[in-house]
Design a protein around this nucleic acid. Structure first.
Length: 491
RNA sequence: GGUCUCUUAGUAUAACGGUUAGUACAACGGGUUUUCAUCCCGUCAACGCGGGUUCGACUCCCGCAGAGAUCACCA
């Protein structure tokens, strides 16, 4: 059985570069009927951020990456917060001490820093094992005593060549020069990531570890620990970084990398974000672009994960989002899409009914890149627009007509619409076609005049649909208002 | 500096050692009774460099260059 995990630190929101290391393990677990575990790596108390855990849970829920074990849902390996697992790490650390593979290190931090600087100055790579204290050779009893006295526990490394297989990167190897006496348990009694994740993954039965490539250079130390602890190596998947839109740096919070929360607030659909991120650095070899979560689960394969970094492209997210907005509307219906839009209407829409807003959505949805566009694109459906006459007169089609002609044209439209019996999209369409004939104006002229008079917006849906949704009263009132303004202008 | 990794159009990517190097986004042009968008059609655009192996290399090997990661009592 395949067991994967997402193990974030609660140091803030999940930024976009990290979500993928939740998505891939999730897909791997789901496609094999395995388990996906959420584990909170909160061993660094200095970096702990209040509320960050909830934000992580919220983000995963929103993306529908449900976890089988972890916070909230519990599980057989609880607790799932590393800060609550001290005894477990202590037990494993004692095993190493008993075996002579770990020692308590009394070297003061300042001393270590001096060693480091001296080695740097001498252009020697700094390795703590070159400065091993006498305590490294203490008996287990002496070591335990020194540990209790508040000293950190270090691994006693046994430098040698390592080679291993990475499911993404292939066969890898390094020399002994990277093996060191890494800290396992800090002075504060909490383990380092280096030690904790190995213990936890073993205890929780994790079979596939997917994480960023930045951990690649620590692999020899991890392999040494698996060996010393008598553990079998799990599968390793090093996921290449997502690069910032500009430069060659990995996407970080300072590169304008937005959090998932921000994309959500902007009106990006979870389906779109999932789709985009899954396909950034992975493809199934076909030319399919749009994947539902179920399709991703089915199609995903570890050996087709890209092994070079991929640049983050917001334009493509917006394209995916537009596709998904239309997909949901066309496949699940306007009501289903409407369900997603609750937080995105302009304030002016507050007093309007769901029915009316649904109608607006139904004619505007295929112009949306994000649901947030509703705020800026639908205002004129809920409030009379400002009569920006310069916009109307200066329009590239209308500026060829005199104000007199505009007024006459508006009058013709108003008369015709006044006498219209049935206010429907079809009859409105027919009416405008008749008006084209009776007035002899070009479509660009007639339509632009009516469209701008109704919306004063840079763009809007097809005219007959806009009129239908706006209704007879609002449509005629706005046309009359523009005609009056033009008439006053003339006098 | 040591160690490790990566390298196809602007971006994301495809291509049993034999293809006019495919697709998508972006850009640009055109079409669909106004606009914006959708939809459709089209244009532009890539194998980092140098050696080898081979009848033949984007693909295999070696070197170089460029980029990235890491070298914490952070993860």
């Amino acid at each position: 059985m395949i067991v994967t995990r997402f193990a974030p630190s609660p140091t803030g929101y999940i930024h976009i570069g990290n979500v993928r290391s939740a998505i891939y393990p999730y897909l791997i677990a789901r496609q094999s009927g395995g388990k996906f575990i959420l584990r909170i790596e909160d061993t660094d108390q200095a970096r702990f951020v209040e509320g960050a855990t909830e934000l992580i849970e919220d983000t995963l829920n929103w993306l529908t990456l449900e976890w089988d074990e972890g916070p909230v849902v519990g599980g057989p390996n609880a607790p799932y917060f590393q800060s609550e697992r001290r005894e477990i790490y202590a037990t494993w650390a004692k095993k190493l001490i008993e075996a002579g593979r770990a020692y308590a290190d009394p070297t003061p931090a300042e001393e270590v820093q001096k060693f480091r600087e001296a080695d740097n100055a001498a252009k020697i790579p700094f390795l703590f094992r070159n400065h091993r204290p006498a305590a490294a050779d203490f008996t287990p009893e002496e070591t335990l005593k020194l540990w209790e006295a508040g000293n950190p526990i270090r691994f006693k490394s046994d430098p040698k060549d390592y080679s291993w297989h990475d499911d993404v990167m292939g066969d890898l190897s390094t020399g002994p020069e990277v093996c060191d006496d890494i800290i396992l348990i800090k002075k504060d009694g909490l383990p380092t990531y280096n030690f904790a994740h190995i213990v936890d993954d073993a205890e929780m039965g994790v079979t596939h570890i997917a994480r960023g490539v930045e951990y690649l250079s620590s692999m020899p130390n991890y392999l040494a620990l698996y060996e010393a602890l008598g553990l079998e190596r799990p599968h390793f998947l090093s996921l290449p970084h997502i690069l910032a839109p500009t430069g060659n740096k990995k996407l970080g919070k300072r590169d304008g990398a937005k959090s998932v929360t921000e994309y959500r607030a902007d009106g990006v659909l979870p389906e779109a974000l999932l789709n985009y991120l899954a396909c950034l650095g992975w493809n199934d070899g076909t030319e399919q672009e749009i994947y539902t979560k179920d399709e991703l689960i089915k199609a995903f394969s570890i050996n087709r994960i890209q092994n070079s970094g991929a640049r983050f492209d917001e334009t493509k997210i917006l394209w995916y989002n537009g596709m998904w907005i239309r997909k949901i509307h066309d496949e699940q219906g306007n009501d289903a899409l409407y369900e997603c839009t609750q937080d995105f209407w302009p304030e002016s829409a507050a007093s309007f009914s769901d029915e009316y807003k649904k109608k607006v959505l139904d004619i505007i949805y295929d112009r949306l890149k994000t649901l947030g566009d509703l705020k800026t694109m639908t205002n004129y459906f809920f409030a009379d627009p400002n009569l920006d006459m310069d916009l109307l007169i200066g329009n590239k089609f209308l500026k060829k007509l005199s104000e007199r002609e505009l007024i006459d044209l508006l009058s013709a439209v108003i008369d015709k619409l006044n006498s219209l019996k049935e206010w429907s999209a079809d009859s409105l369409q027919a009416t405008f076609n008749e008006l084209l004939e009776t007035t002899g104006k070009k479509p660009a002229e007639l339509f632009s005049l009516v469209r701008i008079s109704l919306s004063f917006a840079p763009f809007s849906p097809a005219l007959h649909l806009t009129c239908e949704v706006l209704g007879r009263d609002a449509t005629l009132a706005r046309l009359n208002a523009v005609r009056s303004a033009l008439t006053n202008d003339l006098h």
